[in-house]
Simulated assay, not measured.
Amino acid sequence: MFPIGDDNSARRTFPVVTYVLIALNVLFFFVELSGGDPFIEKWAFVPARFLADPGAGLLTFFTAMFMHAGWVHLAGNMLYLWIFGDNVEDRFGHLKFIIFYLLCGLAATFAQLAFSAGSNVPNLGASGAIAGVLGAYLILFPQGKVRVLMGNRVMPMPALIVIGLWIVLQFFSGIGSISNTADTGGVAYMAHIGGFVARRALTLLFRSKNAIA
């Protein structure tokens, strides 16, 4: 099951923030590839390093949000952001959407920090912020449909199912990461959960008055 798009007929604005976020993530990934391991070590979020010197590690809360562990990681995140981000941005407005995105990403990193405080492994990825966007979509568009590719057929499927399967995958990945040693890491799986949990309060705060409850 591969999601390829949703219904944008009710969208009123051009999703400039969503497209800029996608462009920044792709650009940052190419910089990451050229910089190699030293770049990742410097700009990814390292829990133990941050706790040892919060001032020096503060910027990595944001830079890690635009880094990815590989092409598949990047492509999956950007696909979901492209499908669901534009609708959420339309409801929130451009400024509120970027604030929402960043706050979900920060909440996600704090969730990862809480479960891996002693880890020296760099954590990276936009998945936590995107998890917040997906959660907001479910609140704002509870009846939303997503076009999915199944074999050689394209068929509509409730967004709840498409996003729900993604959430279940992240949940079990996160539970597995808790049982590992403190020096496991890479993709911050608990950050996915943190971003999704944060979306409820932020969505209620940021959505427009005419949004669907």
Rank of each mutant, 00 (worst) to 15 (best):
L113I: 02
L124Q: 10
L124M: 15
L106D: 01
A107E: 04
P122F: 03
F100S: 00
T109V: 13
F110H: 05
A117G: 08
V121P: 00
L113K: 00
S116H: 13
F97H: 00
A108G: 13
T109M: 13
L95S: 11
A117N: 10
P122L: 10
A111W: 06
A108S: 15
L103H: 02
S119C: 11
L124V: 01
H94Q: 13
G118E: 09
F110R: 07
K96Y: 03
A108R: 12
A114D: 05
F100W: 03
H94R: 13
S116P: 00
F97N: 01
I99H: 05
A107D: 05
T109P: 05
I98Y: 06
K96P: 01
A108I: 07
A114I: 14
S116A: 14
F100D: 00
G105S: 13
N123F: 15
H94E: 11
A111I: 06
F110M: 14
L103T: 10
A111M: 15
V121T: 15
Y101T: 02
F115W: 11
L113R: 03
S119N: 10
T109F: 07
P122N: 12
C104V: 04
Q112F: 07
L124H: 07
A126C: 03
N120D: 14
A108K: 09
L102I: 15
N123T: 10
A117I: 12
A117Y: 15
C104G: 03
A107H: 08
A117F: 15
G125P: 07
Q112Y: 09
A108V: 07
G118N: 13
L106S: 02
S116V: 01
A114P: 06
F115G: 08
L113S: 02
I98C: 08
G125M: 10
S119D: 12
S119Q: 14
Y101Q: 03
L95T: 12
G125T: 08
G105V: 14
N120K: 11
Y101H: 02
L95F: 12
G105W: 15
Y101N: 01
C104Y: 02
